[in-house]
Every structure is written in C-alpha cells, then in structure tokens.
C-alpha cells in the first residue's frame, strides 16, 4: 500500500490533465457534428422566413433581420399544400393502421406455432423488405390503371361520402399498395418482439382454455402496446415520406389527390429558376408532421431502426 502511494499521485495528476484535454477534444467533435447535422436544416428554415431580396443578399443560414423577415413564402407554400396535407394524411393514417394490424397478426401467427416450412414463409417475408420498388412498378401501374381500376369504381361512391371528394378514391389503391409492401418490415419488427416473450405465456393461456383468437386479443395485443407505438411511428413516417408509389399511381403533381411529397419538387419553380424561399417553406411544412412525431417519440423511432437491421 505505502509503496504504491507516490505512483498513484503521479497517475492522478496526469490522468486529470489527460482527461481534460481529451474531454475538450471530445466535446468539440460532438459540437462539430451537431453543426453538421443541423446546418442544412437551419439553413432551410431561415431561408423559408426570408424575403427574396434577403435570400439573395444574406448568408443563407443567418436569421432574417429587420425588413428581410417575411411569412409570405410560408403562407404561399401552405396555400399550395393544404389540400395535399389532407391527401397525405388520408393516405398515411389508414394505411399505417391496417398495415400495423396485419403485420402484428402475421408475426403472431408465425411465432405461435413451430412447423416445418415456416422458414420458407419467413424468408419470403424477409425478401419482401428488400425488393426495390422499381421491380414491381410496371405491373403495379398496369394493375391499378388497366386490370383493376379500383379508383374509378370507387369515385362515385366517395362523392357521396360527406367531407370526402370523389378524387379521394384515387388514394385507395395507394393505401392498399402501401399496406401490401409495408407488411414485411412491420412483420419482422413485431416478430422480434413476440419472440422475446416467454413461451409459457401463450401455453398458460391455451391451458386456461383460450382459443388462438382469444390469446391474440386478450394477451398478445395488450402486451405489445409499446411495440405498436414503435411500429406505428416508424411506418407512418415511411408512408408519409414515400414518393415513388405516389409518383407512379397519381397522374401528376397537379392532380387534386396528389400527396405532399409529390408536389414539393414542382413547387416554386418558374422560368427564372427555383424560388428557394417558397421551396424551403414547402419542404419545411412537408417535413413538419414527421419531425414533430420524431421529436416527440425519438425513443420509439430509434428502437424501430435498431430492430430493422436484425
């Protein structure tokens, strides 16, 4: 003990110095990366709040000062997008709900019983996550436009529903498409959760005389509430942000049923180039719902991503 005391003294001193230097370096890096990730976003928001004159004159990420400040761009962008917001939500909310429910059921069905051949089903689901949408785009367009024009069939019906317009019927094929292609990833998210539940829970319920349906409704569904939160937020963000399906199935950005993502690349464009004040306003408004969701449920969002990589 007595021998080691001088050693420790020296160590403590050097360690303190070392730690301080390292800490400073460490936090400098962290702050640098905060800047890296935030700068483009800050730039976008600042630009959205500036007059065209201020955009041309000032450094893009500086806040608008004095006469440079305006809400006109945001107001204009909102007036252009307000319809599209409704379309996006009308599409994303039902699609996410159906998607999450079906995925949870599929995961339950596949974890409930072990049987040979199950692996094949599972692998088919897994590959479904990874298929690039381009590989089904031509058939998809043909199916909804020529083979089974569901939107045309439904539009007279939708015209009769209060608060809905006949063009909202065009969202139905989009909803079904999103559900079908969203099932695999959500199924895998639920599956990893259900696998972590103890087997005995389901077995106890069986011995208690519960049918499979009762086990799902009374045991599995209530227990997986937190996972429903995770998957719902993840999938809502995915569907709300999705572009390619809308691009393929909605005739153009100027169609009344166009969702937000479809309109953004076309907004604020004129012969003299892009009006970035309007473009940034629109981008900011479009991103707002998912950013709010994300900030409010950051933990669930991160959890969904962690599970996704297997």
């Amino acid at each position: 003990m007595s021998q080691s005391t001088p050693d420790t003294n020296i160590d403590v001193a050097s360690v303190v110095e070392d730690v301080n230097l390292r800490r400073i370096g460490h936090y400098t890096l962290i702050i640098f990366f905060l800047g890296f990730f935030l700068l483009p976003l800050v730039t976008g928001i600042m630009t959205a709040l500036k007059t065209n004159e201020a955009i041309a004159r000032t450094v893009p990420f500086m806040p608008p000062l004095g006469g440079g400040f305006t809400l006109a761009n945001l107001e204009y962008a909102f007036s252009q997008l307000s319809h599209a917001f409704i379309n996006s939500l009308l599409m994303a909310i039902p699609a996410t709900i159906i998607n999450v429910l079906l995925a949870s059921m599929a995961a339950f069905g596949l974890t409930m019983v072990k049987w040979r051949g199950q692996l094949v089903i599972l692998i088919l689901f897994l590959i479904g996550i990874f298929v690039p949408y381009q590989a089904v785009l031509v058939p998809l367009a043909r199916f909804w436009n020529n083979t089974f024009p569901l939107a045309d069939m439904l539009s007279p019906l939708f015209a009769g529903i209060p608060l809905l317009q006949s063009y909202h019927a065009d969202l139905v094929p989009l909803i079904i498409t999103h559900v079908a292609y969203g099932i695999p990833i959500c199924m895998i998210l639920f599956r990893s959760y259900y696998q972590s539940l103890p087997n005995s829970l389901v077995e106890a319920a069986k011995i208690d005389g519960a049918s499979i349906t009762k086990i799902y409704r009374r045991i599995i569904l209530p227990i997986s509430k937190p996972m429903f939160g995770v998957v719902f937020i993840y999938q809502f963000t995915q569907i709300y942000n999705e572009f390619l399906f809308s691009f393929t199935l909605v005739s153009s950005a100027s169609s009344p049923e166009a969702p937000v993502t479809l309109i953004i690349p076309a907004i604020g464009t004129s012969t003299s180039g892009i009006d970035f004040g309007i473009r940034m306003s629109a981008a900011f408004l479009a991103a707002l719902p998912t950013i709010i969701l994300y900030v409010a449920f950051a933990e669930q969002f991160a959890k969904g991503l962690e599970t996704e990589s297997g």
Partner: peptide, 21 residues
C-alpha cells in the same frame, strides 16, 4: 436525437435542402 433527425425527413425534403445547400 439531433444526429438522427435527418432520418425523419423524406428523400424529397432532403433533396430540396441540399439543392439549396
């Protein structure tokens, strides 16, 4: 949360932001 924030954006919005950057 901040490092992960761009993940919440769509490709479309990211494209606009970087077009401007």
């Amino acid at each position: 949360t901040i490092y992960l924030l761009p993940m919440a954006l769509s490709f479309v919005v990211t494209a606009q932001v970087w077009l401007w950057m």
